[in-house]
């Protein structure tokens, strides 16, 4: 797979079809597969791919609007591209999509921190992640460390591509059991968990910056007039930030999970975004990023939209 990716990338760069290739390279941290921008034929040799590549590369696309770009895209990446096109941020003709069917990505930071020892080598064999530390060899189940969105992913294959690397995979599906479990808890318990999660936030905004949908030049959280979110670490401000962020994601979030995976404090965010995605699908039959022609969720309405909550 990696060989094929490099081959395609090299050809594209050599023939001048694209200026840059957005892909992944091996990082210096264990379990890290970081974004990498290949600009020359030599740099193509650094490209790799594995389930540790957590970052959704569509985040970088608006930066390269003046270039022709090739991008490694999973299902969620192509959905993000669709949303960005529908919102007029990028143009499809300038993007060459190297499609990758995806089996899900791993919660790399959480796994790394759970090991608690120096990790020397990592490999994936027969559905297991084999982690060699300085003292022992640990085996953990691939499924156990899957990003929650990937676990129930319905669109693992790229929705569109110029070239596909590998065989298409079967969607896992499975709905939103995590959201349903949370809903079953009683009100005060839910609030307690929510507060505990949000108060871990250090406001580094890695969630915002890593999100392919957060391209605003001026974010509401930085606004001083009106002051949607006040400075400081009061719980209500941290909660406001995350709640409003999730509202802005409604109908746009493609459920790639990057925001939660990159959070240095491990704040759980997907139970919020997935809740909204579930509602939109269940009550409005709306799934984000399937069609670049379709207006955004909040940019359209139906006369028979749910309205029974209104007096």
């Amino acid at each position: 797979m990696v060989k094929k990716i490099r081959e395609i990338a090299r050809k594209l760069l050599e023939e001048g079809k694209v200026d840059v290739v957005l892909g992944y390279e091996k990082g210096t941290e264990p379990l890290s597969e970081r974004p990498f921008v290949a600009r020359t034929v030599e740099e193509v040799e650094r490209l790799t791919y594995s389930p540790f590549a957590i970052q959704n590369l569509a985040t970088y696309l608006p930066r390269f609007n003046n270039n022709k770009v090739a991008i490694l895209a999973r299902g969620c990446t192509t959905r993000a591209i669709n949303v960005l096109i529908s919102e007029g941020q990028i143009e499809r003709d300038k993007i060459y999509v190297i499609g990758i069917p995806c089996n899900g990505v791993i919660k790399t930071r959480e796994l790394r921190e759970s090991i608690g020892e120096e990790i020397e080598d990592v490999s994936i064999q027969n559905g297991e992640i084999v982690i060699k530390t300085t003292t022992e060899e640990k085996k953990v189940k691939f499924e156990d460390w899957l990003n929650i969105s990937c676990k129930y992913c319905e669109y693992p294959n790229p929705l569109f591509y110029d070239v596909l690397v590998g065989e298409e995979v079967k969607p896992r599906g499975g709905g939103y059991p995590d959201v349903e479990d949370y809903e079953k808890l009683d009100e005060d318990k839910r609030w307690e968990i929510f507060e505990a999660e949000m108060s871990k936030c250090v406001r580094c905004y890695a969630c915002r910056q890593s999100c392919p949908m957060c391209y605003c030049e001026h974010c509401f959280v930085d606004s001083t007039e009106p002051r949607w979110v006040e400075p400081g670490f009061d719980k209500t401000d941290l909660e406001s930030w995350h709640l409003i962020r999730v509202l802005h994601m409604a109908g746009r979030c493609v459920d790639c999970g990057t925001c939660e995976l990159v959070c240095p404090e491990g704040v759980k965010l997907l139970f919020l975004t997935r809740k909204v995605a579930r509602d939109l699908k269940r009550d409005f039959d709306y799934v984000s990023g399937l069609n670049p022609e379709k207006p955004p969720f909040f940019g359209e309405f139906r006369y028979d939209d749910k309205g029974d909550f209104i007096l």
């Binding site: 580094c204 905004y205 890695a206 915002r208």
Partner: peptide, 13 residues
């Protein structure tokens, strides 16, 4: 800076 996301994690920690 090409792969930098522009978050503040590095500076905060």
């Amino acid at each position: 800076s090409s792969s930098c996301l522009g978050c503040g994690a590095c500076t905060y920690y």
